[in-house]
Write a protein that binds this DNA or RNA. Structure first.
Lengths: 338, 338
DNA sequence: CTGAAAGCGCTTACAG
DNA sequence: CTGAAAGCGCTTACAG
């Protein structure tokens, strides 16, 4: 036989119609058990596989989800944020478990999104993942909403937006970080990260941190804050600028682990001991966190659960079931840096 | 308009036939420039996207590659080997650059591969990636070959196999590790990793290591070898067993960074200083390597180039162009552990 | 339980 | 340069 076998080939060998082959392969109850078995055997022998393009075209669905990873354009091209890499892993697993394929695509935040996966029927729905400037993404989110695209978004839960999100309780995580410092009598706190509406996740972490301090009668001095995106380099430079400006503090909350790792490097270089002089707490619990020196205390986001929830929620949305945005509890992991 | 627009809708509004719409959208030179423009405008206005299932079905190709990541079944379910995660990133980028989508799938080594991506026309070709027991995979590779599936394989170049591979020069990398030890007068060497034909990559690294030592009149004592798969835990336990058996050495070559990291932990626990008492060299240069304490000397595999080559070679294979397996040069990165 | 037939939305040879 | 038509390989309502 030349080329791939089709259902007509199977039909020929099985001595039934092509319709019956199709039914048999889909295990339709309408098919005689014996016929079903015969068809399956022949299909196996001919190494037949249902043509997905044909069946998708016919059924108007794809059993595929698309993952759009949009990255901060300023980050190093060759390095993907390890937190997202972990998410990617868990999303892939979750998809497999649900019988869906996963299309992965990196989007640079600046370029036009190739978000036509759903329109072009390549995917039944889209998962959006990425740090970056949220305000830049607004119009794109709006387009997705207008087009009634099925999508679920990681992390950027903002006010009244009707889109579906799964995110970590960033506010609660920030509070945990502050509570940890207070429990260790470190009340002269600094914060590093972009605490603005450009980065709603970082902003929530900051708010929780500040509020918890306030509830303990500690005020976070605005001068002890520095802006950073989620890279080690950015954390390093932000911390250096604090040190250069002679800002003193004995506790530092970084909006992400990468920032924290950069911060620790800057502190060490300046002869400031971690945790003796400055206690450091990060956010994410990326794999590297436990290996740095000293091991990084951090607020863990459970990527396994997060990936599952993203997939589950998206599938519910696709199936027209009721869904709500999900808030995942963060967990403080105490290590040597604090 | 209800539902998605089709090329017939565009044709209706543009006052041309559907054939012309199809040609115009594909920028066929057969179409009048003015017509082409009009069709494109209307398509944009209606938010029209070519239905991939239909066009793939018609053209019998998918502009999609599949990445099968097969993992060692013994590794922790929640953690993916960071080296493969990095590869995944670079493969995704390389695909995007070539205008291909990437389907990602994790395969447990034990289960049946869902390697029907090509047969089912979901992908034009397959990239295989993973450590694990090579001998277990043999029959599966053979099936792929028999079915004339277009695939390219990372790392497991074995003898006379006709399949296309891209891999690091593991043998040369092993030699570099040995040369490094010899240059630092550390000639009492140990090796940790599965040096058998179950793990051809590890075996090549081991061979190169042993041969380079031999060329410098150093013999690697078989007792100073321990088996390990590519996880930290495995490296830890293998090293502990050497120590427990009172095996002495002043240099340790681990077949992967994860093994090396586990080894360092075991050494430290036993009160053995790295690098003072034992110099350690790993393989891969995963992101964590530079953060561990002490920073890990390792043989880097360039994942960016590797991902590009995998995609390039596979596309050549798909297009019927001439291709050869590719060997990538490794690079020793000297850090604090040696 | 089975078959003949329509149709999913494209692409492209064929005819003009 | 354009259009009518065939056909990619399925799924499923319809008729028996």
């Amino acid at each position: 036989m030349k080329g791939k076998a089709t259902s007509f080939d199977i039909a020929h060998y099985a001595g039934v119609s092509q319709s019956t082959v199709s039914r048999a392969l889909r295990n339709s109850p309408l098919v005689n058990e014996e016929t079903r078995k015969r068809v399956h055997d022949i299909a196996k022998k001919l190494n037949y596989k249902v043509d997905k393009n044909a069946s998708n075209l016919r059924t108007q669905q794809s059993s595929t989800l698309a993952l759009l990873l949009f990255e901060d354009p300023t980050s190093d091209d060759s390095q993907i944020n390890p937190f997202f890499l972990a998410m990617l892993g868990s999303i892939t697993r979750a998809c497999a478990k649900e019988g869906y394929d996963l299309l992965v695509s990196f989007q640079s935040a600046s370029a036009d999104w190739q978000a036509d996966y759903e329109d072009s029927h390549r995917a039944d729905g889209i998962i959006l993942l990425g740090y970056g400037d949220y305000i830049d993404f607004q119009p794109k989110f709006n387009t997705l909403l207008e087009q009634n695209t099925k999508f679920v978004c990681w992390g950027a839960k903002v006010d009244n937006r009707p889109d579906l999100t799964v995110c970590c309780d960033n506010y609660g995580g920030g509070k945990q970080a502050a509570a940890h410092f207070i429990a260790h009598s470190r009340t002269d706190c600094a914060f590093i990260g972009d605490a603005s509406d450009h980065s709603p996740e970082f902003f929530s972490r900051f708010q929780g941190f500040k509020d918890e301090l306030l509830e303990n009668n500690v005020t976070l001095n605005e001068r002890k804050m520095a802006n950073a995106i989620s890279t080690e380099e950015s954390g390093y430079h932000a911390t250096r600028s604090l040190i250069a400006n002679n800002i003193k503090f004995n506790a530092l909350f970084a909006a992400s682990d990468l920032i924290a790792i950069g911060a620790i490097r800057a502190l060490k270089e300046a002869g400031i001991s971690v945790p003796k002089d400055v206690a450091v707490v990060g956010f994410d619990n990326i794999a590297i966190a436990s290996y740095v020196n000293p091991p990084l205390t951090t607020i863990e986001q459970n990527t396994t659960v997060a990936g599952q929830m993203l997939v589950e929620n998206l599938l519910k949305l696709i199936r027209g079931q009721e869904v709500q945005s999900t808030l995942l509890p963060p967990l403080l992991i105490a290590r040597g840096s604090s």
